[in-house]
């Protein structure tokens, strides 16, 4: 791994963090969680970026990124005294497959147009399905990845907002 690629990974994480903060504030998160959301988004997205280079498919890479976000969110949520999804859901938003969704719409419109010659239409139809399925599967992989830690440790995940005894005592 050379230094240029390392820089790319860091930049990818940085821009993912900015994107996560912006999309998070739409949902009015508690202020103290915003830096952690940025950190989680950077880690998850940079991880996906690195895995895409190996190369791993975008669905598997998104799953891995989301899974690491879900695990770290469980760790931080206890310290911040907030539900894990308040940290992890906004951190997922930069990984939502917007570009594939856009291409699905674009190729569908091009496919429906009367001006498109028939020999191009079959390529467009393939593109519609390729982009559409990628959108669907990446989206599901993101959510299942981030939920898996919660479903694995329900006892931990469901008591995040409970104050621990020592804190109550003082």
């Amino acid at each position: 791994m050379n230094s240029a690629f390392l820089l790319d990974i860091v930049l990818d994480g940085l821009f993912a963090a900015i994107a996560a903060v912006g999309f998070a504030v739409i949902s009015n998160p508690p202020r103290r969680t915003i830096p952690y959301t940025a950190l989680l988004a950077a880690i998850g997205h940079a991880m996906r970026f690195w895995m895409l280079d190996i190369p791993v498919s975008i669905t598997a890479a998104s799953f891995a990124g989301a899974f690491s976000i879900g695990l770290l969110a469980l760790l931080f949520a206890r310290r911040l005294h907030c539900p894990a999804e308040v940290l992890s859901f906004p951190a997922l938003l930069p990984m939502i497959p917007g570009m594939y969704a856009y291409k699905t719409i674009l190729t569908t419109i091009q496919f429906m147009s009367d001006k498109t010659p028939p020999e191009e239409q079959q390529f467009l139809l393939t593109a519609v399905f390729h982009n559409g399925f990628t959108t669907l599967f990446v989206m599901s992989a993101l959510v299942i990845g981030v939920l898996l830690p919660i479903l694995m440790f329900p006892k931990v995940a469901y008591t995040m907002t409970r104050l621990l005894k020592p804190i109550v005592g003082k």
């Binding site: 998070a24 739409i26 949902s27 009015n28 998160p29 508690p30 969680t33 005294h81 907030c82 539900p83 308040v86 859901f89 906004p90 008591t159 995040m160 907002t161 409970r162 104050l163 109550v168």
Partner: peptide, 21 residues
């Protein structure tokens, strides 16, 4: 209304507070 994580977080904490004390 618009999504509001702050309410979700604090109202969940309130439910534990009522349960524990």
């Amino acid at each position: 209304g618009p999504i509001n994580f702050e309410f979700i977080s604090r109202l969940s904490a309130l439910s534990w507070e009522a349960y524990d004390n």
